[in-house]
Computed example of a mutant assay.
Amino acid sequence: MIGMDWDKIRVFYAVAEAGSFTHAGESLSLSQSAVSRQVSSLEESLQTPLFHRHARGLMLTEAGEVLHRTAREIYAKLNMAQGLIQESRERPKGPLRITTTIAFGSVWLAPRLKEFLEANPDIEVTLMLSDNELDLSMRQADVALRMTPPTQPDLIQRRLMTLHYHVFAAPSYLVEHGTPDALEDLDNHRLIVFGDEARLALPNLNWLLQAGCAEGCRRKAFLKVNSTFGIFRAVQNGIGIGALPHYLNDQTGNLVQILPEVNGPEVDLFFVYPEELRHSHRVALFRAFIARKTEDLAGS
């Protein structure tokens, strides 16, 4: 790179990630003054400041943000290359970062990972749970289990199964408030639904507020929550009635399905990964593992 060398970029990246010369120095085993000199030298060669220096810490300038994004991409590709090289040995080895929603990851996926980890002890798994989609093309994660198909052209997808939504309540709620026998009875019950901040891409997200209502009618929510897992925990604790994917109760068995003839939205589950990991043994192993496990879930 013109005007830049790798050692200085490495130091700059550590500072940008850590937010201070001191913490970057600790991670690099360098003194604070040595880190500061390297960054200043890089700024001089580029003829532009990369950080705003404040008493409370460091903040990237516009130029610093551009270089930080580029350095992060370089590190992500280097990590991927390292993993692919390690996989050239007989036994798959290296990091595998998996992302999915908080509910699916906590309740369904995490309990099943023991089998995969024990069968592949050299694969270093990180489970990243978020209802916000991480950017696989920017290598924020290696593979994703998503409830919506990807729109980016450089991502490979495989549909795994369909998640079915039903209506559930806790036994304690039904003892206190009674069991609705028809959709119209929901007018007199406490409904737990998604809040406006919910990021799950469900069709007709809060269908429970309108199901069985007269045209134009809409029930009032008793509680709004911004995630499926939050609704699940609220229903478990007897706060009210909620619509949930079937796998949640399959896992716990402590809820009662009410109005069994009522079916909510159907959501497809996809296995997604970047095109550049098409030949990764780690990804292939995990893809086969998840395919087997979701076949069991689909059949339950």
Score class of each variant (00 low, 15 high):
4 M>P: 09
5 D>L: 01
5 D>E: 06
6 W>P: 06
8 K>A: 14
8 K>N: 13
10 R>M: 11
11 V>Q: 01
12 F>A: 02
13 Y>V: 02
15 V>A: 01
17 E>C: 10
23 H>C: 02
28 L>T: 02
29 S>T: 05
32 Q>W: 02
34 A>P: 00
35 V>R: 00
36 S>E: 12
36 S>G: 05
38 Q>Y: 09
40 S>R: 15
42 L>H: 11
45 S>Y: 07
45 S>N: 15
47 Q>W: 04
47 Q>T: 12
47 Q>I: 08
48 T>W: 02
49 P>Q: 10
49 P>H: 07
49 P>M: 12
51 F>L: 04
52 H>A: 10
56 R>H: 13
56 R>P: 04
57 G>T: 00
60 L>D: 11
61 T>E: 08
62 E>G: 07
63 A>E: 15
64 G>K: 05
65 E>T: 07
67 L>D: 12
68 H>W: 12
72 R>W: 08
73 E>S: 15
75 Y>E: 14
78 L>N: 01
78 L>I: 12
82 Q>L: 12
88 S>N: 13
89 R>K: 08
92 P>T: 11
93 K>H: 09
101 T>W: 08
102 I>P: 00
104 F>H: 13
105 G>S: 05
110 A>M: 12
118 E>K: 12
123 I>E: 07
124 E>A: 08
128 M>A: 10
131 D>R: 12
133 E>T: 09
133 E>L: 08
134 L>S: 08
139 R>Q: 08
139 R>Y: 13
140 Q>M: 14
140 Q>D: 14
142 D>P: 05
143 V>M: 06
148 T>S: 15
152 Q>G: 12
156 I>R: 14
158 R>V: 02
159 R>Y: 06
162 T>C: 00
163 L>P: 06
164 H>I: 01
165 Y>G: 00
170 A>P: 00
171 P>C: 05
171 P>Y: 06
174 L>I: 01
177 H>S: 05
178 G>T: 01
179 T>D: 04
180 P>Y: 02
182 A>T: 13
182 A>P: 01
188 N>A: 11
190 R>H: 10
192 I>S: 04
193 V>P: 11
196 D>M: 04
200 L>I: 15
200 L>H: 13
201 A>Q: 15
201 A>K: 15
201 A>P: 15
203 P>N: 10
203 P>Y: 04
204 N>K: 13
210 Q>H: 14
210 Q>L: 06
214 A>I: 04
216 G>A: 10
221 A>K: 03
222 F>M: 01
223 L>F: 03
229 F>V: 03
229 F>W: 14
230 G>P: 00
231 I>E: 04
238 G>I: 03
242 G>R: 07
242 G>C: 09
243 A>H: 03
245 P>F: 02
246 H>C: 04
250 D>E: 10
251 Q>I: 01
254 N>S: 06
255 L>G: 03
256 V>Q: 09
258 I>L: 03
258 I>S: 03
259 L>T: 03
259 L>E: 01
259 L>N: 03
271 F>E: 09
271 F>Y: 15
273 Y>Q: 13
276 E>F: 15
277 L>M: 12
280 S>G: 11
281 H>L: 14
282 R>M: 08
284 A>L: 04
287 R>I: 06
288 A>Y: 07
291 A>S: 15
292 R>K: 10
293 K>S: 10
293 K>G: 07
296 D>Y: 01
297 L>D: 00
297 L>H: 00
298 A>V: 00
